[in-house]
Design a protein around this nucleic acid. Structure first.
Length: 686
DNA sequence: GCGATCAGTT
DNA sequence: CACAACTGATCGC
């Protein structure tokens, strides 16, 4: 639960995800996603009054968040005061103090956060440096490295501070099974049930919150069964979600809710009230999405646990695990990192202690021989040119510490894009083409000049996550890598990450046949109990990890080890993403997504954004130079990882040569500035 | 009556 | 275990 108070030290004139108290004085508001704990004060009378008095105050969010928010009558009063900003589209906003007329310019870029439909992170760039507010996020390892707009010239931007979702920032949550693994597990469980008869139905016991849509859409897609929900009007303009939902109770997959749902279920009654179909009683199981985690030394990922005769829990997380946070933060490598969440049982100080080693000062104090050697070359060769570019863009306002330089190239200008004016109601195809302008590939970069950035999601690293039991029959690398190219948020829901397929065979399917009402996926199975026990034993080797594992330690429950399932063919849908960009040459799975992608329904939003932010505070038509570049995912179909700003893997490591050290020491002695960069935590490197 | 807060539940 | 919400009690405007 977010405890972020709304303001960032660098930009106190804006408020994010909090709308009460001090935030009532903000010059602009930002909403990262539509969860209640990020909307405190958003419909309070005090803020309403402020809006009425301060006509230049707007709320900025993603198009999907705007849609979801305005669907609720309680927030309808925001209608004229929300400006949606397209994902990955740097946009300048003028922050005006209406009393004094004082003005501050800031450029904001929305990055997909993978938390729920419409969820984004905000990257702010202005006079006080570049800061990233993550909101809530779930990003797999390596996702940050694939976000083009976190980079400039092939390397990560210089980020002063990160305001971070630290929900699971504790080593006990070291690993959470990937979305793909979790979905595969749930999918197999659903399959084992609904294929028995038309009267076998599953109830997905989900909370009332956005974030489960990708589960619904994928199950719907896989089984050809729409999911019954109580409400779907908020998705009316998001066909990729809408098409998989229904308010017709006559379906085998339910995600409806009722205050007494648990009670109902005891009586074999679904939350929507039905107990039978065609006078034939239904057979129901419940699946409750819950977060399961695994300690550092645990490799098993049993993503389904049977909790009762007809009840299951399924692994599911909206938030990044510790190792995902670690990967993300160490890649970004900010000067400061501030936790947005202080989980119960811990303290701000403890969380900060965890974050600190992943930030810059810690990183740069580590002895790093290789980077130093290359640093010299890069500096002498390219530094000046890049700094000039940055200055041009920001009027010298952005302090850019000396860092490794990147080969000069056209695609390296960061932060802004030409704010092309797009007329309202412009035809879809036109907008799309606008978004599709391909930039020159960064591939032309001379990687030899880079010294930093070890790729965070190397194959070898991913393999480390593969349970030993799976490695034997692992198939060759497959399309799971294809997603690498698309930094759009919806793609993060593709089965991408660490999925490893070890064959489907292990699933409980073998146990299904019986006439029992519940799938016998379990417990009495020897194999499965061994599963658990081995898990425990492996962890017990470390005292510190005792009790730190996920549910695997919960003795008598068991179950499905999803990692052994092949989920590679599962196609995730865009969850309400309204993507204006159409990619070409996409891998098949992505093509599929595009087919399902709704027509963009946000033309008016595009208009607002491109016509300079907002009607009043932005000088209209102000064009900011941009690297008009759409992720080139498409242009490099053969790339296994991000081709555009692939971070070179660690160069062949070799011991530092005497002369390198000599050089380094000389520099240090003379006080010359040598910046060491390390993108990746050494923990993750081999 | 409405909203904010807190405790308890799911 | 946790999350995100909901419920109900209490307090104050």
């Amino acid at each position: 639960m977010s405890s972020f108070q709304g303001q960032m030290a660098e930009y106190p004139n804006i408020s994010i995800d909090r709308f009460d108290r001090e935030n009532l004085r903000a010059r602009a508001y930002f909403l990262s996603h539509c969860h209640k704990d990020h909307m405190k004060g958003l419909r309070a009378p005090a803020l309403k009054r402020r809006l009425e008095c301060s006509l230049k105050v707007y709320l900025y969010c993603s198009p999907v968040t705007k849609e979801l928010l305005l669907t609720s009558p309680k927030y309808r009063f925001w209608e004229k005061r929300i400006i949606s900003i397209e994902i990955e589209t740097p946009t300048q906003i003028s922050l005006i103090d209406e009393a004094s007329g004082e003005k501050e310019e800031i450029v904001v870029t929305l990055l997909p956060a993978g938390h729920c439909p419409g969820s984004v992170m905000f990257l702010f760039q202005g006079d006080n440096g570049t800061v990233l507010y993550t909101g809530d996020f779930r990003l797999a390892k390596g996702e940050a490295a694939r976000m083009e707009l976190l980079h400039c010239g092939g390397r990560v931007k210089d980020i002063q501070s990160v305001y971070l979702d630290t929900t699971f920032c504790d080593p006990k949550f070291y690993q959470i099974p990937s979305r793909g693994e979790c979905l595969s597990g749930i999918s197999e469980l659903v399959r084992s049930w609904v294929t028995r008869s038309p009267y076998h139905v599953v109830w997905l016991n989900c909370k009332a919150a956005y974030g489960y849509e990708y589960l619904f859409t994928n199950l719907s897609e896989e089984f050809g069964l729409q999911v019954h929900v109580d409400k779907l009007d908020m998705f009316r303009n998001m066909p990729d979600i809408l098409h998989h939902l229904t308010t017709d109770r006559n379906t085998q997959i339910h995600a409806c809710r009722h205050p007494k749902a648990e009670e109902y279920f005891q009586w074999n009654k679904l939350p929507c009230g039905i107990t039978s179909k065609n006078r034939i009683p239904l057979h129901t199981i419940s699946i409750k999405p819950s977060t399961m985690w695994f300690g550092e030394r645990t490799r098993k990922t049993n993503v389904i646990v049977r909790t009762g005769e007809s009840s299951y829990r399924a692994c599911f997380s909206f938030h990044s695990s510790y190792s995902e946070i670690e990967d993300f933060l160490s890649y970004i490598c900010p000067v400061n990192a501030y936790p947005n969440v202080i989980p119960l049982g811990t303290t701000v100080d403890k969380v900060i202690e965890i974050l600190k080693p992943l930030c810059r000062s810690s990183q740069s104090t580590e002895p790093k021989y290789k980077p130093l050697g290359k640093l010299k070359r890069a500096r002498t060769t390219h530094l000046d040119s890049e700094e000039e570019e940055e200055n041009d863009l920001f009027d010298d306002l952005l302090p850019v510490p000396l860092r490794h330089k990147v080969p000069n190239q056209q695609t390296c200008h960061p932060e802004v894009l030409p704010m092309t004016v797009v007329s309202q109601n412009q035809p879809e195809n036109l907008r799309q083409s606008a978004g599709c302008i391909k930039a020159k590939s960064v591939k032309t970069s001379l990687w030899a000049n880079f010294i930093d950035c070890e790729e965070s999601n190397s194959d070898s690293e991913e393999e480390l996550q593969i349970p030993a039991s799976c490695q034997g029959d692992q198939s060759p690398p497959h399309q799971q890598k294809t997603d690498v190219q698309v930094p759009q948020w919806d793609v993060f829901f593709k089965k991408s990450d660490d999925d490893t397929d070890c064959g489907l065979e292990n699933f409980p399917s073998s146990t299904e046949a019986g006439g029992s009402q519940s799938p016998k996926l379990f417990s009495d199975s020897d194999g499965e109990s061994t599963h658990i026990s081995s898990q425990n034993s492996s962890q017990s080797t470390h005292i510190s990890e005792q009790g730190s594992q996920g549910w695997g330690s919960q003795s008598d429950t068991v179950l499905l080890s999803s990692q052994e399932r092949n989920g590679g063919d599962i196609t995730f849908l865009n969850k309400g993403s309204c993507r204006p960009r159409v990619k070409e040459n996409l891998p098949a799975s992505q093509m599929e997504q595009n087919v399902l992608c709704p027509k963009d329904t946000y033309s008016e939003d595009v208009n607002v954004v491109f016509s300079a932010g907002e009607p009043t505070t932005v000088s209209s038509g102000k064009h900011i130079p941009q690297e008009r570049k759409v992720l080139t995912l498409s242009t490099n179909p053969d790339s296994q990882s991000s081709s555009d700003f692939e971070i070179p893997s660690t160069p062949e490591a070799e011991l530092p040569k005497q002369e390198h050290l000599q050089y380094l020491y000389e520099k240090l002695a003379t006080g010359e500035n040598i910046v060491l960069e390390k993108r990746k935590s050494s923990l993750l490197d081999t």
